[in-house]
Nucleic acid binder design. Structure first.
Length: 568
RNA sequence: GCCGCUAUCGUCUAACGGUUAGGACAUAGGAUUCUCAAUCCUACAAUCGGGGUUCGAUUCCCCGUAGCGGUACCA
């Protein structure tokens, strides 16, 4: 054991330039003046040039909880690993989250600017602060310099594995923890690089209890690892930055994904050694995905799963409101019931509760997400769909963007099909689908498609007859009832039944049903056997185009017949 | 390997120690005087295994199993 004076001497050797004291730092971060129960929460991502879907989930939870308690939401950038850092990583996070309506009260707002009095909010700009605390710990003997090389570390590990004991730098294996002032001074003079390690006094055989706001009460072993606090490049590790930043910034609850749970013993000891009041934790389970042909679960992975990257949803034009609603259901399953009862109320009114989080990891279910998307888009007006589709297309589909811009009124009419009344059409999941919606209404797409074959239902001859006769009775001014009556009449004239039950009982009397008549017209006009309400489609298309397409189809059949006759 | 967390239909989940274990998504049928989508109805489908405690266990305890996480000068 070294004396107090020796530790002070070592601290001076290690940090000759650090003049500030811990108290000086604390003066710059006064206690926040907030109402009772207000939560100060932070989302702390690394700028890796990738916005993970799980980040949207976690940050949404934190921001929502902060807002609903009249607290503060902070964005803090954890760029302490220079190897993983990517240029433009900060704005990617800020803008990406903003796209989902997730905005912070304090933190970076772009690559260069920050707002808030408790900054800087970028860890690489806080290096001086960490040094003050590191120096303080060395002076108190709760941290020490360690000059061990990678090779030595590997050797230790090998020995430990041979002996079958826990691997790591701890206890008697931690050869530098009790080095003398002279030994340390020698290494420094030789310019050897070093890290600052925690002088752990924890006992692996002792347990302690804590309460997690999601997981509840749990027991963990004490930490006894002399973990690295400051790396040789002067950057802090996550373990060291976490208690310092969260304490200085006045965080009331640390929400972070479950992968941090196992580090709680380290943080627990660090809070004690730093003399800080322990901040509460909430560890939500991460979003999972099925792997191995459904045999096992694993974290949604940025390398294997396109849906792990937020960009995937943006590029496909998934409505971000629906994604937030899906995450809300994953977080608090009672959100769904609330939504049913409050269909017109803003999502912000929903009270998220940490106690309602499930402890186990939820599988990310894109099918369910898409169901929510459909429901969401069904609540939008044709004008809104037009606007949102255009926004999407301007970024990701030039051709569609051009069409939308040049044909605003026509396109709104298209999006308006089956959008009024009680029966709202729900066939749009994402704004990328707008292209499919426009398909039958623009000749440039229409001409690319070929007619679907329905000759097994209605013979070519009869099809031709239906189309030709229909051209004569078609009146674009008819309302939907008259329109359908005419289709029925035409059917009856040609031996088709307009009553379904009658047809079922006396099939042999008829060639088919009105449905078949409508189907022939549908294929003639849209080339497809499936389409939105045919009456409305024809209305939007307009008389000229409808007649032109009917005539074209009749001609098409004629051509086919002739070529058939040529066959032997 | 060691340490820890978790465990209800295929999926997300609900159920003061007492329920025919509920709902939603998915799937399959059916209904709907034009198809598809939607909507409505119906069906299918679960308490991981074994021990306790208890009059009674999905719920509490122990053991096992499985999944997940951690075991870095990454976060």
């Amino acid at each position: 054991m070294r004396t107090k004076d020796e530790n002070i001497k070592i601290a001076k050797l290690l940090f000759p330039d650090v003049k500030e004291k811990v108290d000086d730092i604390f003066k710059k971060y006064p206690k926040r003046n907030l109402e009772e129960g207000a939560m100060v929460l932070r989302f702390a991502p690394s700028p890796t040039g990738f916005l993970h879907t799980g980040s949207v989930y976690t940050s949404m939870v934190g921001v929502k909880l902060a807002k609903q308690s009249n607290g503060i939401a902070i964005l803090r950038i954890e760029d302490t690993d220079k190897k993983r850092e990517v240029e433009g990583g900060i704005s990617l996070i800020v803008n990406g989250l903003k796209g989902f309506g997730i905005e912070f009260d304090e933190g970076p707002i772009n690559e260069t600017e920050q707002v808030g009095e408790y900054g800087p909010y970028i860890q690489s700009q806080r290096l001086d602060i960490y040094k003050v605390f590191a120096k303080d710990m060395v002076e108190k003997g709760t941290a020490y310099p360690c000059f061990i090389t990678d090779e030595e570390l590997a050797e230790i590990r090998e020995k430990q594995e041979e002996l079958g004991v826990r691997t790591g730098y701890y206890g008697d294996w931690a050869k530098w923890r009790n080095a003398t002032v002279e030994e340390i001074e020698k290494e420094i003079k030789e310019g050897k690089s070093f890290v600052i390690r925690l002088y752990s006094t924890g006992d692996i055989d002792k347990s302690f209890e804590m309460t997690d706001r999601i997981k509840g009460r749990f027991t963990l072993r004490e930490n006894d690892m002399d973990i690295v606090l400051l790396k040789s490049d002067g950057f802090p590790t996550y373990h060291f930055a976490h208690p310092i930043d969260d304490t200085l910034m006045g965080i009331t609850l640390v929400i972070r994904t479950e992968e941090w749970f196992a580090s709680v013993p380290i943080h627990y000891e660090l809070f004690q050694k730093l003399g800080f009041k322990q901040i509460e934790y909430a560890h939500p389970a991460p979003l999972m995905k099925l792997d191995n042909e459904g045999k096992s679960k694993r974290k949604l992975s940025k390398r294997k799963d396109p849906e792990a990257d937020v960009q995937y949803y943006i590029e496909n034009g998934y409505p971000n409101e629906a994604i937030i609603e899906y995450f809300l259901t994953l977080a608090n399953s009672n959100f769904y019931d609330w939504r049913i009862q409050n269909s017109n109320i803003d999502t912000n009114e929903f009270q998220l509760k940490l106690e309602k989080f499930n402890k186990a990891g939820a599988l990310f279910d894109i099918v369910k997400l898409e169901d929510i998307c459909k429901d969401y888009i069904a609540t939008l007006s044709a004008e809104e769909i037009y606007g949102r589709s255009l926004n999407w297309a301007r970024e990701y589909d030039e051709e569609v963007a051009k069409i939308l811009e040049e044909n605003q009124e026509y396109c709104i009419n298209i999006f308006n099909i089956e959008r009024s009344g009680q029966k709202i059409r729900k066939d749009m999941v994402k704004f990328k689908d707008s292209k499919e919606q426009l398909r039958i209404f623009f000749d440039r797409f229409f001409d690319e498609d070929s007619y679907e074959d329905i000759s097994s239902r209605v013979s070519k001859d009869v099809q031709k007859e239906i189309v030709q006769k229909y051209i004569n009775i078609y009146n674009p001014d008819d309302d939907s009832t008259v329109w359908f009556d005419n289709v029925k009449k035409l059917g009856e004239e040609l031996g088709f039944c307009s009553d379904r039950k009658e047809y079922e009982t006396n099939r042999e009397k008829y060639k088919g049903t009105v449905g078949d008549i409508a189907m022939v017209l549908r294929v003639a006009i849209t080339k497809k056997t499936q389409s939105p309400d045919l009456y409305q489609v024809m209305n939007v298309l307009g008389k000229e185009k409808v007649v032109q397409r009917l005539e074209k189809y009749a001609g098409e059949i004629l051509k086919q017949r002739e070529s058939h006759c040529l066959l032997p």
